[in-house]
Write a protein that binds this DNA or RNA. Structure first.
Length: 575
RNA sequence: CGGGGCGUGGCUCAGCGGCUAGAGCACUCGCUUUGGGAGCGAGGGGUCGCAGGUUCAAAUCCUGCCGCCCCGACCA
């Protein structure tokens, strides 16, 4: 590609809207343009990266015998109602009604559509197993698009689906996809961690997330190298410190005190010069339509996933303001465990170790101080119900978790029969019995992968793309575009490289060398080929490796073989 | 949806009751320069987010709306 014949709008200043590294660099280097919040155009360079990643994905999908299809983006709303996900999607769905009154959803994911498809054609166990995938734009009306292309309302996803007779067969394929995902990430030059996760709205029991550790990630993960644990923070349990009563302070008499309009831990701490760990907050939940009070230290957060597990039900939700009023006789912000009637009280293990703490008094504008568990209230259960925090150790360990923020780039699920049952996608087994098909699904956020990669590969000058996904392998630069011998050599090399299927960008602009060098470093091709007058006089040209900043000269006749050697070396490292 | 910030030329920003709205970068033309974002000169480009209101006078003050960013809530 010739620079002067395309659009690479590099900027001198970064638009102030951008904060995340990948977002700033992609805007500055002219990869993307925002049309509105969470809606982006991919410019020539950005689109090339997308296609490089897609090519890698296609190769790896072929290796696990997944066949590519293209499903519609326009889904009849009726299909979503049949799996019960029409409501579950809630505000995230983008839908509209056409002129004949039929409602459509712009596809946010495709389990419904693919299951309908499989159900229509699969009849016998002999039709199974098989895997299909597609690469397509998904639509979700995200509340808050973020960090450039990290979270957008419209994004490109590779979604694959596998169909099986039973769980055992699903597990085998799941493992194959798991390894394919590891290869895809590796080939894209990404360092990842895989964490066990909660399948959430998707359904099923087992799921693994492929995460890239980044300050601009939106997920929290907990890692313990010692215990070989990598989990979403939702699923991280901790060692409970054995509390010794001897260490407890002497219990002081219970006191009620006025706290007008002070509802939050922060407000109370500020007004009464308390530390958050001297408070116990009480969060009310409705579990299978009965009230449950969860008590955790002031600085901690209740982990609903742990509550679900402890109570052995999926039916857990926070109580509404009205329900809280009815249960505690007090407005939100003044709940406490003391004197609660007909409410199951679950205390976090930390609370059992605290003494003389502050809680709500279940009375407007009042709190209690010097509250003590067992003396002032009785907990029905004491368990690990809060999110892990800095310093917490995994079970049976005294080495703390490493807590990180991370970006989800892939997520794979063993769905089971979650969709095939509600959409009646069945097959007959050897005995002629009818069974629902067992399913797995496997997603990759293709554009998020770009952001993650830039996040991991950049320096103060700009992007440093890994060779496998760089828009071009080689960035050819003439120092002086008015110097004809330079241009002649450049044109010759350009044609030669192209002929050998090496992607080359030739900066043939008539601008100062400094501008070209800065732009080259900014847009981040792995190798720069620089043709300058002085070197040319010696029949030499310069090769610069972007990642290492090392630069050296080679004889112009050997340039081609040197480039090939370097490129192969770079590719080799990503295998 | 809650909290905070911001909308002025393509980009970054100044001006925040006063006269004809500015700078740097970018763009066009000319001369000089030419291996790390050049210099000088000339030129083009803005209904100051939108709509009301206050005022002799509004980019500037007030109200409403729209858009954008950040934190939170939410999220396959």
């Amino acid at each position: 590609m010739l620079w002067r014949e395309t659009l690479i709008p590099t900027l001198r200043d970064i638009p102030k809207e951008a904060e995340a590294t990948s977002h700033r660099l992609m805007l500055k280097a002219g990869y993307i343009r925002k049309l509105s919040a969470g809606v982006y155009s991919y410019l020539p360079l950005g689109f090339r990266v997308l296609n490089k990643i897609i090519a890698i994905i296609r190769q790896e999908m072929a290796r696990v015998h997944a066949e590519e299809v293209l499903l519609p983006a326009l889904h009849p709303a009726e299909l979503w109602r049949r799996t019960g996900r029409y409501e579950a999607l809630g505000q995230d769905k983008i839908s509209f009604t056409n002129r004949s009154g039929q409602e459509f959803v712009l596809g946010p994911t495709h389990e419904e559509v693919i299951t309908e498809l499989a159900g229509a054609y699969v009849q016998s166990y002999q039709d199974l197993p098989f895997s299909l995938y597609q690469i397509q734009t998904k639509f979700r009306d995200e509340l808050r698009p973020r960090f450039g292309i990290v979270r957008t309302k419209e994004f490109i996803m590779k979604d694959a689906y596998s169909f099986h007779q039973d769980e055992a067969d699903l597990k085998q394929t799941y493992q194959k996809f798991y390894r394919a995902y590891e290869r895809i990430m590796k080939r894209c030059g990404l360092a990842i961690v895989v964490v066990s996760a909660d399948p959430g709205i998707m359904g099923g029991k087992v799921s693994d997330e492929f995460m890239v550790i980044s300050p601009y990630g939106e997920d929290h993960i907990a890692i313990s190298k010692e215990k070989n644990i990598c989990v979403s923070r939702d699923l991280a349990f901790r060692t409970i410190q054995k509390q010794q009563n001897a260490k407890k302070e002497q219990q002081l008499p219970l006191e009620k005190f006025e706290t007008p309009n002070l509802r939050t831990v922060e407000e109370l701490c500020a007004r009464f010069k308390l530390k958050a760990n001297q408070l116990v907050k009480t969060i009310l939940y409705i579990v299978d339509s009965k009230p449950v009070a969860a008590c955790v230290p002031g600085q901690s957060e209740v982990n609903e996933f742990k509550l679900r597990k402890l109570l052995n039900t999926a039916n857990v939700r926070q109580a509404t303001a009205q329900e809280i009023k009815r249960i505690t006789n007090a407005p939100v912000g003044f709940s406490g465990p003391v004197g609660l009637k007909d409410v199951r009280i679950i205390a976090d293990a930390d609370v059992a170790g605290m003494s003389n703490f502050v809680t709500g008094a279940n009375e407007a504008d009042m709190h209690l101080r010097h509250v003590n568990i067992d003396r002032d209230f009785k907990a029905d259960s004491v368990a690990d119900i809060r999110y892990v925090e800095e310093g917490d150790c995994p079970p049976d360990s005294n080495k703390p978790y490493q807590l990180q923020t991370a970006m989800e780039v892939g997520h794979i699920f063993q769905l089971g029969t979650r969709y095939t049952q509600s959409l009646s996608a069945t097959y007959r087994n050897e005995k002629g019995e009818t069974h629902p098909i067992v399913m797995g699904c496997y997603g990759i956020g293709v554009n998020r992968l770009i952001a993650a990669s830039i996040d991991q590969h950049h320096d103060d000058k700009g992007i440093v793309f890994p060779i496998s996904i760089a828009p071009f392998h080689v960035h050819l630069i003439t120092v002086n575009q008015k110097h004809e011998p330079s241009c002649e050599l450049a044109a010759r090399l350009y044609e030669q490289l192209k002929k050998e299927n090496i992607d080359v960008l030739y900066d043939n602009r008539d601008v100062r060398a400094g501008v070209k060098f800065n732009d080259a470093d900014l847009i981040g091709m792995p190798m720069q080929l620089i043709i300058g007058e002085k070197n040319l006089a010696k029949k030499m040209i310069e090769i610069k490796i972007r990642a290492t900043k090392e630069s050296y000269q080679v004889d112009q006749e050997q340039a081609f073989s040197e480039v090939t050697k370097q490129l192969n070396g770079m590719l080799e490292k990503l295998k």
